[in-house]
Computed example of a mutant assay.
Amino acid sequence: MSQATQDLFERYHACWADRDPDRIAEMHSPDSIFHLHSGGKPARGRDEIRASAADTFAMVPDLTFNLVNLRVGDDFWTVQWTLSGTSAVGNVVDVDIMDLVLVANGEVLEKHTYVDGVAMQAALTPSASA
């Protein structure tokens, strides 16, 4: 394990926990990729990454991350989370995700997030009784 990568993970996670798209984007390299593997295109570059993070927080304004498992190497981390909160349409969010994050020179180069699509779609879809 690399202590520098562990420290980067902790600073990066703090930006997500604080729901701060600006700080999230600043921690990415200028040509970084953030890909939420749920059918959409990857966000490329800091501006698109900032917008993608802001969209995430708009969908689940009280989003919290519950750490399940973390593995850190010299140039990567992989982490399993359970996301929780209430979606913008009022549904409970309880979704498993897995991140693979590639890093170099103290910056995030790529972030790939794999999500339980069925659970996420259920959380984001307005219910028939609404």
Rank of each mutant, 00 (worst) to 15 (best):
I49C: 06
T125I: 04
V103C: 10
A123D: 07
E107L: 14
W16A: 10
P126E: 11
D96Q: 13
P61R: 03
F57N: 06
T82W: 04
W81P: 11
A58I: 00
Q80K: 10
A119S: 15
H37A: 14
Y114Q: 13
V92D: 15
G40W: 01
T78P: 01
E110M: 13
K41G: 13
P126R: 11
V72Q: 01
D96Y: 06
D20F: 03
T82F: 03
F34H: 11
D116R: 08
Q121A: 15
Q121L: 09
Q6W: 02
R19K: 14
R19E: 08
G106C: 07
S127G: 15
A104P: 08
Q80D: 14
I24S: 13
T78Y: 02
K111D: 15
H37C: 12
I49Y: 04
L67R: 12
D96P: 05
G39A: 04
M59N: 11
G39E: 07
D55P: 00
F65C: 05
Q121F: 04
G90V: 05
P42G: 09
L124I: 05
C15Y: 04
D94M: 07
T56R: 06
V89D: 14
L109A: 09
E110K: 14
Y12K: 06
D96L: 08
S2N: 11
R19I: 02
F9Y: 15
I97V: 15
V68R: 13
S29V: 01
T78V: 09
S87K: 02
V101S: 06
S2F: 01
D75P: 01
V115H: 11
D20I: 01
A119D: 12
V108H: 08
M98L: 15
S129R: 06
T64V: 01
L109S: 11
S129D: 12
L8S: 09
H13N: 12
S129P: 00
D22G: 13
N91G: 06
I24T: 14
A54Q: 12
P42D: 08
F34S: 12
V92E: 15
M98S: 15
T56E: 11
V118K: 13
R11C: 05
H13T: 06
S52E: 10
Q3R: 09
A25F: 03
S129K: 05
V60D: 03
A17Q: 10
V72M: 03
A53P: 05
T82V: 12
N69T: 04
D55Y: 00
Y114A: 14
K111V: 02
I24G: 14
S29A: 15
E26I: 00
A17D: 12
S52K: 03
K41I: 00
L36T: 03
L70G: 09
V103N: 11
E107Y: 09
A54G: 07
L67H: 08
I33T: 14
A43I: 01
A25N: 07
V79E: 10
M27G: 09
R50W: 01
H13P: 00
A4L: 06
A58F: 00
A25W: 03
F9D: 10
V101M: 05
A88R: 11
L70Y: 02
R19Q: 12
E110D: 15
S129N: 07
D31T: 04
H37G: 05
M1N: 11
S87T: 05
L67D: 12
G45V: 01
T64G: 08
